[in-house]
Design a protein around this nucleic acid. Structure first.
Length: 210
DNA sequence: GACCAGGCACATC
DNA sequence: GATGTGCATGGT
Protein backbone atom coordinates (compact mmCIF):
# COMPACT_ATOMS: atom_id res chain seq x y z
CA UNK A 1 0.00 0.00 0.00
CA UNK A 2 2.84 2.35 0.82
CA UNK A 3 4.06 2.07 -2.72
CA UNK A 4 0.63 2.53 -4.28
CA UNK A 5 -0.32 5.72 -2.47
CA UNK A 6 3.07 7.25 -3.10
CA UNK A 7 2.98 6.21 -6.74
CA UNK A 8 -0.43 7.81 -7.19
CA UNK A 9 0.90 11.02 -5.73
CA UNK A 10 3.85 11.02 -8.09
CA UNK A 11 1.59 10.49 -11.07
CA UNK A 12 -0.77 13.27 -10.06
CA UNK A 13 1.99 15.72 -9.29
CA UNK A 14 3.87 15.09 -12.49
CA UNK A 15 0.66 15.43 -14.47
CA UNK A 16 -0.89 18.48 -12.78
CA UNK A 17 1.93 20.16 -10.84
CA UNK A 18 1.55 22.15 -7.63
CA UNK A 19 -1.98 23.31 -6.85
CA UNK A 20 -1.15 26.18 -4.48
CA UNK A 21 -3.85 25.37 -1.99
CA UNK A 22 -5.93 26.57 -0.16
CA UNK A 23 -7.34 29.09 -2.65
CA UNK A 24 -7.72 31.78 0.01
CA UNK A 25 -5.48 34.46 1.37
CA UNK A 26 -5.73 34.68 5.15
CA UNK A 27 -6.07 31.80 7.59
CA UNK A 28 -9.46 33.16 8.59
CA UNK A 29 -10.63 33.24 4.99
CA UNK A 30 -9.63 29.59 4.68
CA UNK A 31 -11.60 28.67 7.77
CA UNK A 32 -14.70 30.45 6.52
CA UNK A 33 -14.26 28.83 3.11
CA UNK A 34 -13.96 25.40 4.69
CA UNK A 35 -17.41 25.77 6.21
CA UNK A 36 -18.97 27.38 3.14
CA UNK A 37 -17.73 24.68 0.79
CA UNK A 38 -19.50 21.86 2.58
CA UNK A 39 -21.17 19.85 -0.19
CA UNK A 40 -20.89 22.87 -2.45
CA UNK A 41 -19.14 23.90 -5.64
CA UNK A 42 -16.18 26.18 -4.96
CA UNK A 43 -17.34 28.72 -7.54
CA UNK A 44 -20.42 29.38 -5.46
CA UNK A 45 -18.32 29.70 -2.33
CA UNK A 46 -16.17 32.33 -4.02
CA UNK A 47 -19.20 34.47 -4.72
CA UNK A 48 -20.15 34.32 -1.07
CA UNK A 49 -16.63 35.15 0.08
CA UNK A 50 -16.47 38.04 -2.38
CA UNK A 51 -19.65 39.44 -0.87
CA UNK A 52 -18.06 39.37 2.57
CA UNK A 53 -14.84 40.91 1.29
CA UNK A 54 -16.61 43.72 -0.52
CA UNK A 55 -18.30 44.69 2.73
CA UNK A 56 -14.96 44.30 4.54
CA UNK A 57 -16.55 41.78 6.84
CA UNK A 58 -14.10 38.94 6.42
CA UNK A 59 -12.51 39.40 9.83
CA UNK A 60 -13.33 37.59 13.06
CA UNK A 61 -14.56 40.66 14.96
CA UNK A 62 -16.68 41.94 12.08
CA UNK A 63 -18.32 38.60 11.35
CA UNK A 64 -18.98 38.06 15.01
CA UNK A 65 -20.78 41.40 15.24
CA UNK A 66 -22.84 40.74 12.11
CA UNK A 67 -26.41 39.54 12.73
CA UNK A 68 -26.95 35.98 11.55
CA UNK A 69 -29.73 37.02 9.17
CA UNK A 70 -27.47 39.51 7.40
CA UNK A 71 -24.69 36.96 7.23
CA UNK A 72 -27.10 34.45 5.69
CA UNK A 73 -28.12 36.96 3.01
CA UNK A 74 -24.48 37.66 2.10
CA UNK A 75 -23.47 34.01 1.79
CA UNK A 76 -26.60 33.08 -0.13
CA UNK A 77 -24.74 32.05 -3.34
CA UNK A 78 -22.97 29.28 -1.42
CA UNK A 79 -26.25 27.47 -0.82
CA UNK A 80 -27.60 26.11 2.49
CA UNK A 81 -27.16 29.70 3.57
CA UNK A 82 -29.22 29.53 6.75
CA UNK A 83 -27.44 26.41 7.92
CA UNK A 84 -24.05 27.83 7.06
CA UNK A 85 -24.70 31.20 8.69
CA UNK A 86 -25.55 29.32 11.88
CA UNK A 87 -22.44 27.16 11.56
CA UNK A 88 -20.20 30.18 11.01
CA UNK A 89 -21.67 31.73 14.14
CA UNK A 90 -20.98 28.58 16.12
CA UNK A 91 -17.42 28.60 14.85
CA UNK A 92 -16.94 32.26 15.76
CA UNK A 93 -18.25 31.58 19.24
CA UNK A 94 -15.66 28.85 19.55
CA UNK A 95 -12.89 31.11 18.24
CA UNK A 96 -13.70 33.87 20.71
CA UNK A 97 -14.56 31.67 23.66
CA UNK A 98 -11.35 29.67 23.53
CA UNK A 99 -8.88 31.88 21.68
CA UNK A 100 -10.11 35.44 22.11
CA UNK A 101 -10.76 35.65 18.36
CA UNK A 102 -7.05 35.29 17.64
CA UNK A 103 -6.02 32.80 14.97
CA UNK A 104 -2.41 33.00 16.14
CA UNK A 105 -3.40 31.86 19.58
CA UNK A 106 -5.26 28.98 18.01
CA UNK A 107 -2.24 28.05 15.92
CA UNK A 108 -0.12 27.60 19.02
CA UNK A 109 -2.43 24.90 20.34
CA UNK A 110 -1.43 21.26 20.01
CA UNK A 111 -3.29 20.04 16.94
CA UNK A 112 -4.74 16.80 18.24
CA UNK A 113 -6.33 18.73 21.04
CA UNK A 114 -7.47 21.40 18.61
CA UNK A 115 -9.03 18.75 16.41
CA UNK A 116 -11.14 17.45 19.27
CA UNK A 117 -12.21 21.00 20.07
CA UNK A 118 -13.22 21.70 16.48
CA UNK A 119 -15.18 18.47 16.22
CA UNK A 120 -17.16 19.52 19.27
CA UNK A 121 -18.38 22.63 17.40
CA UNK A 122 -21.80 22.08 15.88
CA UNK A 123 -21.45 22.19 12.10
CA UNK A 124 -17.80 21.17 11.99
CA UNK A 125 -17.24 17.55 11.08
CA UNK A 126 -14.05 15.64 10.37
CA UNK A 127 -13.39 17.03 6.91
CA UNK A 128 -14.01 20.64 7.84
CA UNK A 129 -11.90 20.32 10.99
CA UNK A 130 -9.03 18.77 9.08
CA UNK A 131 -9.23 21.34 6.29
CA UNK A 132 -8.92 24.08 8.89
CA UNK A 133 -6.02 22.31 10.59
CA UNK A 134 -4.09 21.52 7.44
CA UNK A 135 -4.75 24.49 5.20
CA UNK A 136 -5.31 27.34 7.62
CA UNK A 137 -3.03 26.28 10.47
CA UNK A 138 -0.44 24.16 8.62
CA UNK A 139 -0.87 21.17 10.89
CA UNK A 140 0.13 17.71 9.55
CA UNK A 141 -3.26 16.03 9.09
CA UNK A 142 -4.66 14.40 5.93
CA UNK A 143 -8.05 15.55 4.63
CA UNK A 144 -10.50 12.92 3.39
CA UNK A 145 -13.29 14.06 1.12
CA UNK A 146 -15.75 12.58 -1.34
CA UNK A 147 -13.19 12.61 -4.15
CA UNK A 148 -10.60 10.86 -2.01
CA UNK A 149 -13.12 8.16 -1.12
CA UNK A 150 -14.03 7.59 -4.74
CA UNK A 151 -10.41 7.40 -5.80
CA UNK A 152 -9.61 4.78 -3.16
CA UNK A 153 -12.72 2.76 -3.93
CA UNK A 154 -12.43 2.86 -7.71
CA UNK A 155 -8.80 1.84 -7.58
CA UNK A 156 -9.43 -0.98 -5.17
CA UNK A 157 -7.49 0.57 -2.30
CA UNK A 158 -10.43 0.67 0.12
CA UNK A 159 -13.96 -0.60 0.33
CA UNK A 160 -16.94 1.68 -0.10
CA UNK A 161 -18.34 3.04 3.14
CA UNK A 162 -15.16 2.73 5.20
CA UNK A 163 -15.14 5.32 7.96
CA UNK A 164 -13.25 8.60 7.85
CA UNK A 165 -10.60 7.85 10.46
CA UNK A 166 -9.66 4.55 8.82
CA UNK A 167 -9.08 6.24 5.47
CA UNK A 168 -7.17 9.07 7.08
CA UNK A 169 -4.93 6.59 8.87
CA UNK A 170 -4.34 4.81 5.59
CA UNK A 171 -2.76 7.92 4.14
CA UNK A 172 -0.99 8.99 7.29
CA UNK A 173 0.58 5.61 7.92
CA UNK A 174 1.85 5.33 4.38
CA UNK A 175 3.07 8.81 3.58
CA UNK A 176 5.83 10.94 4.97
CA UNK A 177 4.44 13.12 7.71
CA UNK A 178 4.84 16.40 5.86
CA UNK A 179 2.36 19.27 5.80
CA UNK A 180 3.27 20.20 2.25
CA UNK A 181 2.75 16.64 1.03
CA UNK A 182 -0.63 16.32 2.72
CA UNK A 183 -1.59 19.71 1.35
CA UNK A 184 -0.61 18.93 -2.24
CA UNK A 185 -1.94 15.38 -2.27
CA UNK A 186 -5.47 16.28 -1.27
CA UNK A 187 -5.49 19.29 -3.59
CA UNK A 188 -4.41 17.07 -6.46
CA UNK A 189 -7.19 14.60 -5.71
CA UNK A 190 -9.72 17.41 -5.93
CA UNK A 191 -8.16 18.54 -9.19
CA UNK A 192 -8.47 15.01 -10.52
CA UNK A 193 -12.02 14.80 -9.26
CA UNK A 194 -13.22 18.06 -10.73
CA UNK A 195 -11.55 17.80 -14.09
CA UNK A 196 -11.46 14.07 -14.74
CA UNK A 197 -12.91 10.97 -13.32
CA UNK A 198 -14.13 11.23 -9.78
CA UNK A 199 -17.64 12.47 -10.49
CA UNK A 200 -20.41 10.77 -8.58
CA UNK A 201 -21.49 8.77 -11.57
CA UNK A 202 -19.69 7.49 -14.55
CA UNK A 203 -16.12 6.40 -14.94
CA UNK A 204 -13.07 7.70 -16.69
CA UNK A 205 -11.68 5.76 -19.60
CA UNK A 206 -8.55 7.87 -19.64
CA UNK A 207 -7.68 8.01 -15.97
CA UNK A 208 -4.36 9.80 -15.40
CA UNK A 209 -3.65 7.22 -12.70
CA UNK A 210 -3.64 4.23 -15.04
C1' DG B 1 -34.89 19.54 -16.72
C1' DA B 2 -31.55 16.40 -14.54
C1' DC B 3 -27.40 16.05 -12.34
C1' DC B 4 -23.70 17.70 -9.65
C1' DA B 5 -20.97 20.05 -5.95
C1' DG B 6 -14.20 20.01 -1.46
C1' DG B 7 -20.78 17.83 4.57
C1' DC B 8 -23.16 17.76 8.63
C1' DA B 9 -26.72 17.17 12.12
C1' DC B 10 -30.73 15.20 13.38
C1' DA B 11 -34.88 12.05 13.27
C1' DT B 12 -36.39 7.56 13.14
C1' DC B 13 -36.33 2.73 13.27
C1' DG C 1 -25.78 1.40 15.19
C1' DA C 2 -27.46 1.86 10.52
C1' DT C 3 -30.18 4.37 7.33
C1' DG C 4 -32.83 8.37 5.59
C1' DT C 5 -33.64 13.28 5.17
C1' DG C 6 -33.27 18.44 5.09
C1' DC C 7 -30.53 22.05 3.85
C1' DA C 8 -30.14 25.48 -1.54
C1' DT C 9 -27.51 27.93 -4.89
C1' DG C 10 -25.52 28.09 -9.54
C1' DG C 11 -22.95 25.70 -13.42
C1' DT C 12 -22.99 22.05 -17.06
Amino acid sequence: MTGKLNLIYKKLYSRFGPQHWWPGKSAFEIMVGAILTQNTNWQNVEKAIDNLKRQKLLQPQKLRALPQERLAALIRPAGYYNVKARRLKYFLNFLFDFYGGKIEKMRRQQFRYLRRQLLAVNGIGAETADSILLYALKKPIFVIDAYTRRMLFRHGLAQEGVDYDTLQNLFMRNLKNKVQLFNEYHALLVKLGKDFCLKRQGRCDRCPLK
